[in-house]
Design a protein around this nucleic acid. Structure first.
Length: 550
RNA sequence: GGCCCAUUGGUCAAGUGGUUAAGACAUCGCCCUUUCACGGCGGUAACAGGGGUUCGAGUCCCCUAUGGGUCACCA
């Protein structure tokens, strides 16, 4: 077989050689140890928390080492393309603080290693494909889908490994004349890799996360170019990551099974391998079983889910860092005020087994993160969020800016600050009592207090209420009212002698709290009252008195 | 089913042949306290199972089990 002739026959228009591209995309001039990473989503527009997890690893690796972090769009599959997806992807990553040094951007591409859309790189792939044909390592395969299906059935019935390989790879042996004839009939074909691997052999490869992997050699004649001339993921990965001079390929563990094929391709072309970093999947629990996060089955795990609930990007980022590197939490405790960028991220500290995504933990992390954000900023974030996802409250928030900020600030100072705020939806619920439109009596008055007493206590409270009282004066008045009505002025007194009292001052203050905010639990009511102002306070107490029909 | 990867409390996990097997979240109890939080103290709770190797195994090897991934002209 004259491979050279075959190559020219198959790719008559490809006149560039690999060395042309080697020169066009030279080794990057970066300092020693600089890592070049990329994320390479397909343009479905859907980004989920697992993508973010991987992207953070890429970003940290690159930025920490003075390298390059880029965005490449893997749009080799027409069926997966969604309108506006690229912008959605970029926006989502940017929301969580991820920006790119190179590659696809909102206003076009940046960088010298493009194009960064795979669909625009056809010539580059075909050039490498042509080279492989010349070397006798790739060949056209005219098999139809039906023929392939038939082959599979036969292999299944014989209980042998399915696929196109070895003696089953019939069209490996096509003569040049046969190929010419088929081409002249305009038969469509794919370009297959001619594997020289042996299923029985194993080889070792270092994975930066998992250590030494023992894998079987590839022996399948995988498809390099589809019949439309566009490469499969496998071939595109090899070509792009080489010419874009990517040093570290961070990707999910689903690629482990095709790694042998990628390795064989790199070797066949004569290129060095990148450092592979196969991350574990994030899992979820379903019916008691762990399961890979799936974008089809778990739309709630899309990034938009968190954006809609109003999780602060810094909180999501902080949580992801804790599952990304096992020593991050420890570092955080030692460096509570440092930026996550000061943490030294390492691949060795990444988990090799799939972590369950833990919403409880996210919430916990979020509380701590929000505590460090000034109330004014949280207000702005809340406003921005409502503008997108809860427009009906935007007006309220704007009208009551000062009050809202004060409400968000209650008890956040000092060395034992409250951690009430988690995410916007929850935050609004937390302060919603303030707005008459959302205020409602949700809890019952304490069981130690009957309705008649409640009415009386509230009446007396209203009489003595003076917004000018400081917190101590205010509470002393409540103590007096409590005592005068048979309630212990201190909870301890009641505990000691429960028979002497109907209840204690806490029961009285809870009654006032319910009248004011409708709930039995809340931050300090004196502070809330100062924010509400005298009129609103009096109105709510009076309303409660009137509600009680005794 | 073949192949590959994984397996320490409910969850995230430290651990690289000798530890009373860390820590965090959750949970429970107590303390603080006008409620709830916050905070403090304490508790319950784990090396999937079985064989080896070794003076000694969570750590190394083998088998089994379980979970996951993958077996496309999808990525």
């Amino acid at each position: 077989m004259n491979y050279k002739e075959l190559a020219n026959l198959l790719f008559p228009d490809i006149d560039k050689t690999i060395s042309y591209y080697e020169e066009k995309y030279p080794k990057r001039n970066l300092k020693d140890g600089a890592k070049v990473t990329r994320i390479a989503p397909s343009p479905t527009g859907f980004v989920h928390i697992g993508n973010l997890y991987g992207a953070f690893a890429d970003e940290r690796l690159a930025r920490q080492s003075g390298g390059v972090f880029m965005l490449r769009i893997e749009d080799t599959d027409e069926k997966r393309k969604v309108e506006g997806a690229v912008k959605a992807i970029i926006d989502a990553f940017e929301f969580f603080g991820l920006t790119f040094d190179e590659g696809v951007g909102i206003d076009g591409e940046t960088g010298d290693y493009g194009p960064y859309f795979q669909s625009m790189r056809k010539d580059i792939y075909q050039c490498v494909a042509k080279y492989l044909v010349e070397q006798g390592r790739a060949y056209p395969c005219f098999c139809t889908e039906e023929e392939l299906l038939e082959l599979r059935k036969k292999q299944e019935s014989e209980k042998i490994t399915t696929g196109y390989y070895g003696k089953w790879a019939r069209e490996r042996n096509l003569t040049l004349d046969e190929i010419k004839e088929r081409l002249s009939r305009n038969e469509s074909f794919v370009l297959r890799f001619k594997s020289i691997g042996d299923e029985q052999n194993t080889f070792e490869i270092e994975d930066a996360i998992r250590g030494t992997l023992t894998l079987r050699e590839n022996y399948q004649d995988i498809v390099l170019l589809k019949s439309n001339g566009i490469p499969t993921y496998h071939f595109a990965h090899v070509v792009d990551d080489h010419f874009m001079r990517v040093t570290h390929v961070v990707r999910g563990e689903e690629w482990l099974s095709t790694l042998p094929a990628h390795v064989e391709m790199f070797r066949a072309i004569g290129w060095d391998l990148p450092v592979y970093c196969h991350t574990a999947h994030l899992m979820k629990i379903e019916n008691g079983n762990k399961r890979k996060l799936s974008k089809r089955k778990d739309p709630e795990l899309g990034l938009t889910y968190y954006m809609e609930l109003g999780y602060h990007p810094a909180a999501v980022r902080e949580y992801i860092m804790t599952i990304l590197n096992s020593n991050y939490e420890e570092w955080r405790m030692a460096n509570p005020d440092s930026s996550y960028e000061e943490f030294e991220f390492t691949l060795e500290k990444m988990s090799t087994s799939g972590a369950m995504f833990d919403l409880e933990k996210l919430n916990n992390v979020s509380k701590d993160v929000l505590l460090k954000i000034p109330a004014e900023d949280i207000y702005e974030f809340l406003l921005e969020w409502s503008g997108k996802y809860k427009t009906e409250i935007t007006g309220l928030l704007e009208k009551n800016k000062t009050s809202v900020i004060r409400l968000l600030s209650i008890g956040r100072e000092g060395n034992k600050p409250r951690k009430d705020l988690i995410y916007c939806e929850q935050i609004f619920d937390f302060i919603s009592y303030f707005f008459d439109e959302y205020f409602r009596i949700a809890d019952r008055i304490p069981e130690n207090i009957d309705e008649q007493d409640a009415k009386k206590l509230l009446g007396e409270y209203l009489k003595t209420y003076d917004p000018k009282d400081d917190q101590n004066q205010w509470f002393e008045k409540i103590r007096k009212i409590a005592e005068a009505n048979g309630y212990a002025p201190r909870p301890k007194d009641y505990k000691k002698n429960p028979d002497l009292y109907k209840g204690h001052v806490g029961d009285v203050s809870t009654t006032i709290r319910i009248a004011l905010i409708g709930r039995a639990n809340s931050p300090d009511i004196w502070e809330i009252q100062q924010i509400m102002g005298e009129d609103k306070v009096r109105a709510r107490i009076e309303n409660m008195i009137n509600r009680i029909k005794v």
